[in-house]
Write a protein that binds this DNA or RNA. Structure first.
Lengths: 107, 107
DNA sequence: CTCTATATTTAAGTTTCTTATATATAACAT
DNA sequence: ATGTTATATATAAGAAACTTAAATATAGAG
């Protein structure tokens, strides 16, 4: 596991990227997907994820549909058209930032 | 300028890396160096930097020496031996994290 | 019948960051 | 003379974000 301060600040970017690639996803699914893609190196906590999802929904970036599967409620999140644009911006920004950070970290 | 949440969490890593490469530095110098290396894309704020420097000093990662240059006080920060080890860990961790993030962001 | 996995939510407390302010010197321009 | 910009550090109030923990609920495995 990476230190928490490094993971910090990438949550929104990760969420938007995953939703862009996978269409609709529910919260628990997002945490599992991130675990899988990172070989268990990044573990999103619910206390951080859900407030972020709710905030993005409030901002009009995400919409939700609740469905009951196996008697358990699932709340699916999808990007709105606004969210799709926001995801593009965030993804581009991430790569630019990463390039800049690599410059600093290789100086 | 990148969004604040992306810069978030990289402050400690940047400070430790710069001090490792440049020996002693003072706060203002760190902000200028980061501006320079990032082509003005990353601007560390004093309100974030100084509390972090003070915290690292308190943790025994940094030591300080004050000098007066041109009638202005400068407080030079350097890595302790503990800080040197901490810098190594943080730098390695950054590159590992970056690799993992790139996997997620390229999925 | 207990533990683990699935699934979401909230709330208290802590940390961290933003923004603003205070203090001080010096160089340069008006 | 006077104001602006650059240099240099520090602190404090408030906001934002995260950590940790607890609450609620179903289902399968041992």
């Amino acid at each position: 596991m990476y230190s928490k301060d490094l993971i910090r600040g990438t949550l929104r970017t990760i969420v938007l990227k995953l939703l862009k690639e996978n269409g609709r996803m529910y919260g628990y699914e997002i945490t599992q997907k991130v675990k899988e893609l990172s070989s268990d190196q990044i573990s999103l906590t619910f206390g951080a994820l859900y407030p972020t999802l709710h905030k993005l929904e409030k901002e009009g970036v995400l919409t939700t549909i609740s469905e009951v599967v196996d008697h358990r409620t699932r709340k699916y999140y999808s990007l709105t058209s606004k969210g799709d644009a926001a995801a593009k911006v965030k993804i581009d920004e991430y790569f630019a930032f990463s390039k800049t950070m690599n410059l600093i970290m290789s100086s």
